[in-house]
Write a protein that binds this DNA or RNA. Sequence first.
DNA 1: TTGAAAGCGATACCAT
DNA 2: ATGGTATCGCTTTCAA
Lengths: 326, 326
Amino acid sequence: MTTIKDVSKLAGVSVATVSRVLNENGYVKEETKQKVKQSIETLEYKPNAVARSLYNKKSYTIGLIVPDIMNPFFPELARSIEDEMNVHGYTVILCNSDADAKKEEHYLDILKQKYVDGVIFVSHTLKQESIKEWGLPLVALDRPIGEDIPSVSVDNRKAARTAVEYLINKGCQSIAHICGPSFIPNANERYLGYLDAMQNTNQKNYEELIINGYYQWKEAEKSTYTLLKNNDSIDGIFAGNDIMALGVMKAAEAAGRKIPKDLQIIGFDGVQISEMLNPELTTMAQPIYEMGTKACEMLLERIEGNQVLETMSCFETRIIERSSTL
Amino acid sequence: MTTIKDVSKLAGVSVATVSRVLNENGYVKEETKQKVKQSIETLEYKPNAVARSLYNKKSYTIGLIVPDIMNPFFPELARSIEDEMNVHGYTVILCNSDADAKKEEHYLDILKQKYVDGVIFVSHTLKQESIKEWGLPLVALDRPIGEDIPSVSVDNRKAARTAVEYLINKGCQSIAHICGPSFIPNANERYLGYLDAMQNTNQKNYEELIINGYYQWKEAEKSTYTLLKNNDSIDGIFAGNDIMALGVMKAAEAAGRKIPKDLQIIGFDGVQISEMLNPELTTMAQPIYEMGTKACEMLLERIEGNQVLETMSCFETRIIERSSTL
DNA sequence: TTGAAAGCGATACCAT
DNA sequence: ATGGTATCGCTTTCAA
């Protein structure tokens, strides 16, 4: 690796001068500047980011902690975050936490040691206090942690309610809900949204039509199959996320229900694959990519110390009408 | 941030001694050791990884360059790589290149500046020479670059041939191939594998049944639809990857062909969603997770300077039989 | 306008 | 067994 010293020697100046032209600060005569630039060119010199970080206490690196990049919701998020940070000259360290508090804190430690400038994370286990004492800028994505931690999300309850109402408007008389684990706040909110919508209907047994799919495809499939077998009247299902909706669709097929004629299905999230299915999935879509971008903006605001500190960003969701509903 | 100096002061020893207990090298009296550990504890001291990197010329960070993390093939790869590197104390910087040579080289530059210890990449545009002069350990994944660059992949041609033969054995008389872009070597090899298999059949018009799906879902769907409309006799399709197979399935539905009765389909890759579909997709699966792990092992061998230098790792693929074939 | 030198935080060599 | 100090590569203050 060639260093600033090599450049200074070749150009016949001091390292201080080289540093000046590198960072375009301080005075340097046009002539010397050219000499230095020339030397940089010929040596193909690239400044060492580690040395810079050490002095500046800034690494132009952020951490991204997600439960599992293999969950289809996160690649799109990761992509948008990487894109946006890249534009601003930052690099992204990817961490999979499996939603395990231990792992999350482990990563937080490591990231801090590596001098990251901030972290964007998706977690429901981290607590406000432990995060605050961590000391670096953070933004919570998809799962708000508390008042004091900036976050980007959607109004899950309202969106869920709207999704269920959509099924009602499409004529469903008996709507079930495959929910996510209640300890994940957004799953719980979607569950509450379902209740909100159902309260105003004639359907009385709806509390019995709520089953846990644990936000997982296989689980959702299994429990939906049982549910359908035991309840002939069900003609609509609101799945707590798109992955579970996939399971629901398979179960419906296995149970001999035609989608959407016998059974209408609406998912939640709007991940890419929801469109690639057969039939395509109607879903309450979050603007995933934009949310990632927004999280970056909020993080950058904090990192670069601007005062415009938006703390809660709530995005609108929208229904994408496709063929799993009438 | 507390530094080694703070610890040394509190413990009443020199920074050298602290460093010794930190790295467990050199002699240090049990008593002082305890004092130091105590101080580390009370100050919650964590060594600064940046300073360490600067001195050691080692960052315990690697780069991972993939075309696009949103492509379902890569999350599984990214996960396995992050898992494996994490076990060894490394952290992973994620880079999306869009298979664009400019971006790839841009990232390579940045990663080098950040002192990464090595890079794992998926690329068909990088050339052997430019990689060699880059100077740090590299491993090519999924798309071998040349003899001198260590790589992890599968025998795409043979696997493709086997996939097509599987359709033949299942009774298909007229098999089409939706291929990927020919400039991506693995797509081309899969294409050759298709030809290998078809040469021995009675089907003579097979060269007319090869269409480009550009490794993309939407493209594959469109061109497959046209293909099916113009060729009533097609009863089998080998898709160059699973994503295109999804498009094929949709097109088949739209064209009124029943899967697998009228039309059998086999994909390639074995990504997670191939199982979540309806019907489930039969596919020639690569051991994606294991391949990622292997790439890590090979990279670590080079980083840590062991001499056991395996350069070409070729994994076996296997057919996962599901319901898109008879 | 430029250079010398003091850091940034840690490691390891050379003394003692 | 422990401490002083040069070093990693770069930035910035202070002098000249």
